[in-house]
Design a protein around this nucleic acid. Structure first.
Length: 493
RNA sequence: GGCAUCGUGGCCGAGUGGCUAGGCACAGCUCUGCAAAAGCUUGUACAGCGGUUCGAAUCCGCUCGAUGCCUCCA
């Protein structure tokens, strides 16, 4: 019997606007697709939050025992800058500006992306396909949609016929828009005379002679429309219908709306059971934008090389900060908020390190089994990580009381407590101590223990100059000593 | 202008038609050689204005504000 049979997971489905019981199409298996980044610059912190949210979801599904195929793409072509500039590709533009090969740009920022996500302790997806690696699949889908009559070719470009599609299906159901309203609110755009209607979107775009990124197709040399890649890759790796599609709130319209339209037009089926959208991250109450200076790169937070925060913050602290908010809420990042999270994070990790060393007795002052279920209840409620963290802090309080000898715990409960804490903190929330375990850490620990013994002796001799010197010097190195009833412990960093 | 999400105590953030999370900060106390750590105690907040209700911060309406999107813009 798997955990997922014992726990009832509810997820907020953007398509229905409701929390629904999660039931995968194939029992025990989950197919999940998340829109990845366009690799034309350093990964945005807001993007990190989105990917971190889905990483947590991926982790929890796995923890429940599901076999999850998690696909997250890399957009390395097909993203246009703006139509006024005859549709220059973002990658190509960056390449031109930096005098690089397009693939050089892709390589550089893909590496940056992976590097940052690894620091945030994100698990790699099961498959990470690229748009340029799936041109053939995209052409096939265009062909299919053309055949079904929901697209038309014009001067070497192919457009999706939204009005025709809307006659049979419903365009706008995800974002709550009505096609009539959209038509009424359309602003005048230039250079789109090829389209029958302004609502139509490109499936294939003809490449102008100077365009570097181009592929041959039945309609001439060109490149695929942005929305198509996700349809092609999700279909290829997860099938015509799959369980979860995720992405940032900003992608709901038009991107995800178009994905639904493409899939329905080509195979008549709604592709996704549950649409999940992660909300945005703001900085000091304002949206992040390079133009206003209200912006920061993840790397700049880790190193402290920025003018926004008073000190560097570790990736784990930032991750903990983000996990303290629900993924569907707008989260505001500020210096004060990070400082608060940093203290809370260390308190949590400090208590966790104590569980193993707890003295056991024949009575437990804590309903461990009920507490454990309350952790699941939090996560089952649409991945409510802030509530989960509140539950974890309940345990922290008990751990500290037991450590002080004011409460007790049985050996069985201690085992359960430790296992549950580890599962939720490490496996689900993805929070790991930054300290790398190894020979050097062991040696460091031994040295600190030695100093603790020396300090203890000094204190017994009332040589407080020496004892305080040891304490203060260690503190300067980031090693904090904690005196307790049962002796002195320490924490690194 | 339209669509969407939201507006919670000093800060960050859960939650819910009545029993009012959690973290951080602040104050007092306990412990301590002094600190730190830890524990205990104290906070009745829910943008504004109306309405529904025995009762709303939670439901409805309006106003104000924030964030995202409005078609080739991620």
């Amino acid at each position: 019997m798997q955990l997922y049979d014992q726990q009832v997971l509810k997820v907020h489905n953007s398509l229905s606007g409701q929390k629904e019981n999660f039931k995968p199409q194939n029992p025990g298996h989950v197919g999940m697709y998340v829109c990845g980044p366009t690799v034309y610059s350093n990964v945005h912190l807001g993007n990190c939050r989105t990917f971190m949210s889905f990483d947590m979801i991926f982790r929890y599904l796995r923890h429940l025992g599901y076999k999850v195929r998690y696909v997250r793409n890399i957009t390395d072509a097909g993203h246009l800058v703006d139509d006024a500039e005859d549709g220059e590709d973002k990658i190509a533009k960056k390449a031109r500006l930096e005098q690089l090969e397009p693939m050089e740009v892709v390589q550089r920022y893909t590496l940056d992306f992976h590097n940052i996500l690894a620091k945030f302790n994100l698990l790699p997806p099961s498959i990470e396909p690229t748009a340029t690696g799936h041109i053939i699949e995209q052409i096939e889908i265009i062909r299919d949609i053309l055949e079904k009559g929901y697209a038309y070719e014009k001067n070497g470009s192919v457009y999706f016929d939204v009005i025709k599609f809307n006659a049979t299906y419903e365009y706008g159901k995800l974002s709550g828009r009505k096609l009539e309203d959209m038509i009424a609110n359309t602003r005048e755009l230039t250079a789109q005379d090829e389209k029958k209607s302004p609502q139509d979107f490109a499936l294939w775009k003809k490449a102008e002679p100077q365009h570097i990124m181009r592929w041959p197709s039945p309609w001439g040399d060109g490149f695929p429309g942005w929305h198509l890649e996700c349809t092609a890759m999700s279909t290829k790796y997860l099938g015509e219908t799959f369980d979860i599609h995720g992405g940032g709130m900003d992608l709901k319209f038009p991107h995800h709306e178009c994905e639904i339209a493409q899939a329905e037009a080509s195979n008549g089926k709604s592709p996704v059971s549950y649409w999940l959208h992660a909300n945005m991250l703001t900085l000091n109450g304002k949206k992040m934008a390079k133009s206003t200076g209200n912006s920061i790169l993840p790397g700049e937070i880790f190193t402290g090389e920025n003018t926004i925060f008073s000190k560097p913050f570790s990736p784990a602290v930032v991750r903990f900060f983000m996990m303290q908010a629900h993924y569907t809420s707008i989260l505001d990042m500020s210096n004060d908020a990070l400082l608060a999270s940093e203290k809370g994070y260390h308190k949590l990790m400090g208590a966790m390190a104590q569980v193993e060393r707890l003295n056991t007795a024949n009575h437990t002052h804590m309903e461990v089994t009920a507490w454990k279920q309350s952790c699941y209840d939090a996560m089952n409620d649409d991945f409510n990580t802030p509530v989960l963290i509140a539950k974890l802090f309940d345990a922290v309080k008990h751990i500290n009381l037991i450590k002080e000898g004011k409460e007790s715990i049985t050996e069985t409960d201690q085992k359960t407590l430790l296992e549950t804490m580890r599962q939720f903190v490490h496996d689900v929330l993805g929070l790991e101590e930054n300290v790398t375990h190894g020979e050097s850490t062991e040696k460091l620990g031994a040295v600190v223990e030695l100093l603790i013994q020396m300090r203890k002796k000094a204190r017994e001799n009332r040589d407080f100059t020496t004892s305080d010197h040891i304490r203060d010097q260690l503190a300067e190195l980031g090693i904090q000593l904690k005196d307790g009833k049962e002796g002195t412990t320490y924490s690194l960093g």
